[in-house]
Design a protein around this nucleic acid. Structure first.
Lengths: 232, 232
DNA sequence: GTCTATAAAGGGATAGAC
DNA sequence: GTCTATCCCTTTATAGAC
């Protein structure tokens, strides 16, 4: 076997256990046994269980957000100032999450990604201040440019809904298979991604609440909107 | 405020703690202290921590699914055989979840609803075989009737995405407020519900994959496309 | 860096008095 | 039904040998 580093084996095992049982439900004893390491190795390499968890999440999120940034930079450079097409933009946001599975031997990255926000508030805040806060404004700005008919709250709501749908896929592939009665193969990442992008793009493009002007669909007028629209 | 029954106070406190910390993260000592009850009361009334959890989830799910069934029966009777309007159908599925908050004094029902599927697989299976398995086929059949252009796998995928978005709202209202920078008020249930239904209805109505016409899409080419299609 | 051994705390469950 | 007291187990963390 290729033992890699003890530190890396600990991260691999911890990723699996945190994904399966959450932070509180995973025990360092099982993690270290799974990693073929000693219990004290966690303290030596990370200091505490919480620091190990943070390291696991950071390792999961880093390549996902790096890929998002890379694709976003490339797409915006290629667009030369024009708004991105909404399906392409959503694929940039969603694709790296779903494809992270293929690159991870343990295939638990997505579950960690989907679950870590449900951990205790202190943990979540600490993680939210980290790698999330660099990519989110970029995505938000790109969405606002591509969907000029929507107000900022509408953009915010829909981003939230979108990430929820993404996490529902990432959280548990077994649930998707069981829930669909075998109709959906969660192992088919590209199919799942195609369905997800199509669903999200349509939801994102849904017409916003219009008080009087009945636009059949969201106008693709790249007029820089600044008007505040207060409606219920 | 009547102290109700010890059993009910235990359920109330357990709902809060399970919602905040998950099954593994909640401790019976804190729950019983919060309920003003004795530690041994859990064993007496429920038998074990796991049975208490199951009772909490059942109490949360029962009124939600009962309301869904009631609304679905009424809508289908009123439709007299015609497919339901997709927005009305989605509101029937989603509304009882979001509105469950208003009826619960502790306002934790939604968080329990959103989190309980992330618990250990054994727990999840046990709960999935319960109240979920009566309402899901009804929703699925109604969706299939309202969206005849979609294949069964497409229906299944989109149901999964839909419930993910719903859970993202139910899971943590604080996240919605923080994530939106204060633009979204999670306490405004009706506004949130309206935005969510509009988003989901559009996603559900997205055109399905054409069998022969649509070839496999390349990864991400920001080729600007015309406005999207309207009806399925 | 890795190990053994143990500390210190907290967990769920339960027996038995009342 | 409710309580006290306790059992027994697991947990994280750490000290110190190697």
């Amino acid at each position: 076997m290729t033992p890699a580093d003890t530190r890396d084996r600990l991260l691999d095992a911890a990723e699996r256990h945190f994904a399966d049982h959450g932070f509180a439900g995973a025990s360092l004893r099982e993690i270290t046994a799974d990693a073929g390491a000693n219990l004290a190795a966690v303290s030596y390499h990370f200091g505490s269980k919480e620091e190990l968890f943070v390291a696991v999440v950071a390792r999961v999120m880093a390549p996902i957000n790096a890929e998002r940034l890379r694709l976003l930079d490339a797409a915006e450079a290629s667009a030369a100032g024009r708004p991105l097409e909404i399906e392409a933009l959503i694929e940039i946001v969603v694709g790296p999450v779903l494809r992270a599975r293929a690159e991870s031997a343990s295939a638990c990255s997505m579950r960690v990604f989907a679950r870590f926000q449900h951990e205790d508030a202190e943990l979540w805040k600490r993680l939210a201040e980290g790698p999330l806060k660099v990519i989110k404004p970029r995505i938000e700005a790109a969405l606002a440019r591509s969907l000029p008919a929507l107000t900022p709250p509408e953009i915010a709501y829909r981003m939230h809904f979108m990430m929820g749908a993404v996490k529902s896929v990432a959280a548990d592939q077994h649930a998707l298979r069981a829930f669909s009665g075998g109709l959906c193969d969660p192992g088919d990442v590209e199919r799942t991604l195609r369905e997800l992008v199509r669903f999200l793009a349509a939801g994102m493009c849904a017409p916003g609440a219009k008080p009087a002007a009945r636009a059949r669909r969201a106008g693709n007028n790249p007029r820089p909107r600044r008007a505040k629209e207060s409606k219920a």
